[in-house]
Structures are given as structure tokens and as C-alpha cells.
Design a protein around this nucleic acid. Structure first.
Lengths: 187, 187, 187, 187
DNA sequence: TATGAATGAGTGTTCATTCAT
DNA sequence: GATGAATGAACACTCATTCAT
């Protein structure tokens, strides 16, 4: 019977993420979520204490999923240029393939009122470990991890978000960006 | 006949921006706005057609204010390194000094449900003109404007947003960042 | 200058009657009326004490207009049958040609909450005088005036209101009705 | 899971009908209805999709109740005169005994803005069948059903509505009316 | 006289949440 | 565990009316 329950919760999560992309945080109510998930509003409260907790839980679950996605792809035998290209491209494609999740996380994290309560700020540790490792191996320049993070990820995010450019132009921009990031970070 | 009271509208705008920082988009209701602005809920509707229009109007007004702020500071006699340092530092300090406005714009623009309706996209033209000019003068590398934008601004934004780091560490990170951006973009 | 004012008031009246047909009593607000009439909401209050008084005034003005319309058409030299046919047909055509006014009056008078305040019940006196006259002349049977009123007018109203029947069928029904009323009332 | 509470819905209906008599269509708000019915405003929306649908539903339920009331009283062994007297008197007494319902239906049906959406029109069929039957049996004159309807019911309604006459005078008028209708319709 | 700005009280409706089953 | 009924509080918005000009 455990199966059934888990599926309900999964449906709820899916519904939340879908609706928040479509209708924003305001405009996504418990009853809409329940309808979309095919359960009763009351059922939501079996799995989550209240709406805020629900959003936080889901945020926590997905906010660093992307980094796992990246780390899974990194392997020991890559050189620095390969590694950066891989990470950047994987990040870009994750955003495209998981747009609902990505926008959910983005919206949540750009709302101080939500993140203040939440305090995720957390398990990026493994990415940081990777950077530390690469710095020790003289692959990366000796920069602060926060700097490296900002340089690798945020420009890619900015490109993805930009709804003006057509897809094929974005590919070209990405190529320029990879080169820049490689030159900026690698020794 | 009473004249439209500019101060009233200014108070409404201030209230919106303040409340959205404090309470997020959801959680910011017309009646809270009205109370904060010291007017009746009905008065809001004299100045704005409805809530959506109000947010869009305010977003449109502020979304590119930051770029004016930057362009005002740029002067002809700077070399490339100076210019980039100035732009980056000004951007950073704008975010700090206008955090309410900045977070309002960020939250709005990270919500597809809102931005889809609102076609701003617009008048960043003058920044683009500056870049084009600098490329012609062989100061900037011949990169796409979108790439340049992404490289200059988004890492700074990422640093500012990061609520983990204490202020003095951010200063150091900013220094690293400026160096990286200079090397990446200047010929 | 008296001209101008009167026109404003006429526009307001027209607007009220039009909007009440289109949108009913609820749904017809002062500001909609003002917009339709091309004046400011405040202007309405120059001509009428408040909304209720406005409706009552307009009701009073039009509620017995129809009877004037009828009496104008009656002439001395008609016999009983002619007179009844004329009255019935005129009543019917008045409803069709002045549907906005008619429905305004109908809606108003079928709402006890409105009519209770308003004591019109009034100047049908001239119709009653006509009936009394005809009874004295042994044209009409010696029935109560209220009975005569009910028999002549209400069936015609019922026919007009009936939105099922096509127009040409109504003409036939009207013919039947006239015959019935003539036989019922005339000596 | 709580069951839908029939009594709640009944209370809501009663409240609607009572308030509409007292305060008219405008002036009868959901919150007044809810208070009168002893439920929360939100509860109303469990039983009805929205205010318009609520009014329509209730209208549909009651608009032809009166005809059932009449048909129940008609029996085979009456002659024409008896039948008409019975129908007229029953109609009159129904109006008096169910004045709230009657005025609700009247107000609703005299508002084109409401009836246009609604499309009841419907099940007066059984009354029509009765008329057809009586015409076949040579009891009624061969008149159109709409004519018969108009002649029987609308004058009675007009009398009932008339708030000038005292009750005992109405009784006399009714007597006159019955005679007239009998003579007009019976062979 | 005439106006558009301004408003408190109200509108219909939905919200997050709890209750009874 | 799961539900739909139930709700008080809140929502966005409009109302009839008044104010200052």
C-alpha cells in the first residue's frame, strides 16, 4: 500500500510545479493543486503541514537537484576545458529539459519572503569540493568558490531566461560563453 | 474638480515595492498596499486599471532604471578597465542601495506568468549602443551583446543575492569578479 | 443655458432606461449611467437627490405615460368595439415601440422593495374617468374599474412579454384577444 | 467526509426568496443571504456555481410550481364553469399564500437581463394539454393556448399585485373576473 | 453648474485550512 | 489514509456618494 501513497505525493508535487510555471505563486492555490493532482484538498495536508511547508519541502528537494545532475556527468579523466564545457552545457540543457522545475526554483529563490524562512543554503558542498579539488590540482585558478559559481552558472542562466533570442542564436552565445569561462577560470 | 495627486501615486508605488520585498508577490494585497500608502483601496483603482496593470506599470518604470543609473556614470575619458570596474561597482551598489526596487524587478521578471503578459523587453538599446561603440573602438572584444550583458551583470547579481556571505567578503569577491570580467571582455 | 442642463438630464434618463433593459437593476450603477450619459457621476447628483430618488422620479415620469399615449388616441365618435380595438392595439404597439421604457417600468413595478417607497398609484384617474363615462353611456358593462383595467391591459402585456411566439403569431393572438375583450366588456 | 446537508441548501433557498421580496434583486447580496441562512458565504458556493446560477436554479425550481399546484386541484368530474372558477381561485390563493415565491418569480421573469441567460420556457406543457383536452371536449372555445393563458391568469395576477384595493374589495373583483373569464372561454 | 478625484462600505468570490465521516 | 463539506478571513474590485476646485 505504500506505493499508492507515494504516487499521491508525487502527483501533488508535479501539480505544484506545473501550476506555478503556468500561473505563478499567486494563482496557485491548494484547491487548484488538489484538482490537478486528482486528490482532495484535505489530502494535501496529510503530506504537508501547510502550504508554506509544502512549497519549502518541494523547493528543498529540487533546488540542488541540478547540481547532482551536473556532478553525475563529471568524470575524472576530463581535462579542464572539457570539464567546463560539459558543466555549462549540462546546466543549459537541464534548464531546457526541466523548465517547470527550474522556474519553480527560480521564482521561489527570488522571493526573499520565502527564502528567508526556508534556509536551504546547503548541500552545494559537493560542487565546492569539486572546485577545491581542481584548485589543488592546479586546474582551476585560485579563486573563491563563490566567484567560480557566479562566473560559471549565472551567465548561462541569464541566457536561458532571455526570451528574445531564438534558440539557434542561443547556441552561438553559449559557445562564446564557454570560451570566456574557460579562459577566465582555467590556469 | 480635484487634481490627481502625484504624491498619492508615489506612495502607492513605494508601498507596492516595499511590501513585495517584505511579503512577496502573493501576500501583497491591494488592501495592504492601500493601508501602507495611506489611501483607500478604491483610490488605487484611480491610478491603475487593476492589480496586474499596476504591477506591470511599476515594473516597466523600474525594470530599466538601473541601466540609466549606469549610463549616467559612464564618461568618455575612461579606459576599458576603468569603465568595466565602474559599471560593475555601480551595478553592485545600485542593487544595495535600491534593494526594494531590485527585488521587485527580480521577482517580477522571474515569474513567467507575469512577464508573458507584459512585453517589456525594450529599451536596453542604449547599453547595447555603448557596447557597439566600444567594439568599434577596439576596446571590447567582438562578442555578441547578449554575451557581454550576461558576463558583466549576472555574476554580480548572483553575488549580491547570495545571503550567506558577509558584506566584507562580498567586497573581495567583487574584486576578483572585476578582474575576471576585464580580462574576459577587453582586448 | 437652460437648454444645456435639460439635455444633460435627458441624457441621464435615457442612459438609465437603456442600461436597465440591458443589464437589469443590479448591474446599472451610477458610474455606468454617467459614462453612458456623457457626464460625471457627480453631475447626476445635481439633478437627483440620490439613486433611489432618481429611479423613482424616472419611474413616476414614465409609469403612466402609456395611458396618456392611449387617451390621446381616443376620440368621441368611436363606438365601443372600435374604442377597445384601438386601445388594445395602441397599448400593444406602445410596448413594442418603447420597449426600453416599458421594461424599465415593469421591472420597477414588480419589485415591492422599490414600489413600497414610491407611492405612485396615481394619475390613472383620467382612464378611470373615461371608463365611468362609458359606463354611464351604457357602452361598457357596469363593472369595477379595476376589473376593466385587468381585463383590457394585462393579457396584452402577457402576450407581449412572451418571447416564445414569433411576431406574426402574436398578431393573430391579439385579434382573438380583442374579440374576447370586446365581448366581455361591452353591452 | 461530511455529507451535503440538504437543510443548508433549503435554508439558502428560503433566505434568497425572503430577501428578494424584502429588498429586491439588487440589495440581496450573498453575504446577506448567508447570514439569513445561517451559513458562511463560502458555503453558498458549495451548492451553487455563482450568484447568477443560484438565482436561475431557484427560479427554475419555482417558476412552474404554481401550475402543478393548479393541476393537482383539477378533477375530471367538474364542468367548465367549476373548473375555471377553481383554477382562478387557486391561482389567486397560491399568490397570497406563497407571496415570497411568487414575487421572486415575477421579479426574475420581468428582468430581461436575467431571463435571457436562463431559457426556462418549458414545462407548462401539462397546462396546455389540459386546454387541448377541454377544447376537444367542446368545453373551451377553440382559442389559441396562449390566448387562454393570457385571459385566465394575467388579470388575476394584476388584481393580486394591486396594492391599492383592500382585501375584501379584491374578493368582489375576483368574482366579476371569474364570470368574465367563464363567458369568454366556455362554449 | 459641473467635474474627476477620493473614499468607506460593500460586492461576489476564493483562500488555506479544519471537520466529520 | 482519504475525502468532500464547511468556514472565517481575505481577496480583487465596484458601489453610491462627497469633496475640492
Amino acid at each position: 500500500m505504500r506505493k499508492k501513497d507515494d504516487e499521491k505525493q508525487r502527483n501533488i508535487k508535479k501539480a505544484v510545479i506545473k501550476l506555478i510555471l503556468e500561473e505563478g505563486f499567486h494563482g496557485t492555490s491548494i484547491s487548484k493543486i488538489a484538482k490537478e493532482a486528482g486528490v482532495s484538498p484535505a489530502t494535501v495536508y496529510i503530506y504537508y503541514e501547510n502550504k508554506d511547508m509544502m512549497l519549502q519541502d518541494i523547493y528543498r528537494e529540487y533546488s540542488e537537484e541540478i547540481f547532482c545532475h551536473l556532478l553525475d556527468r563529471v568524470s575524472e579523466d576530463m581535462d579542464g576545458r572539457q570539464l567546463i564545457e560539459l558543466v555549462v552545457r549540462s546546466y543549459y540543457s537541464y534548464i531546457h529539459e526541466n523548465d517547470e522545475i527550474f522556474y519553480f526554483v527560480e521564482q521561489f529563490s527570488s522571493c526573499p519572503a520565502l527564502t528567508n524562512q526556508c534556509g536551504v543554503k546547503g548541500n552545494i558542498v559537493s560542487i565546492y569540493n569539486l572546485f577545491n579539488d581542481l584548485k589543488r590540482k592546479k586546474v582551476l585558478k585560485p579563486l573563491r568558490n563563490d566567484t567560480i559559481m557566479a562566473v560559471i552558472f549565472s551567465p548561462v542562466k541569464a541566457i536561458s531566461n532571455n526570451q528574445c533570442n531564438p534558440e539557434d542564436e542561443k547556441v552561438d552565445i553559449l559557445k562564446e560563453l564557454i570560451k570566456i569561462i574557460q579562459d577566465a577560470l582555467l590556469l
